[in-house]
Amino acid sequence: MHSTDQLLRRILTDVLGLKAGQADGFTAETGLFGHLPELDSMAVAGLLTEMEDRLDIVIEDDEIDGELLESFGSLLAFAEGKRAES
């Protein structure tokens, strides 16, 4: 089984159209929403739905806020917490 960290980097690679390996350079501080103009509301919705599918988690709409998507670190912490719950 792949780690949440690996899976999340792969999802972001698909959503952002990154080259292979490019997401390996993401650190906890790497900015996402607000730093990446291509992440509009529909792209964010797609990202969250893909996270649900591939990480086998359910994301409630009231959990979606700016902070969650602020950085790679915050999104990863959220995803890891969700996976630990399930």
């Binding site: 690679t13 698909d14 959503v15 952002l16 990446l36 291509e38 992440l39 509009d40 893909e50």
Partner: peptide, 8 residues
């Protein structure tokens, strides 16, 4: 990755 996932 499916191209429908792309932000652009």
């Amino acid at each position: 990755g499916g191209l429908w996932l792309r932000a652009e």
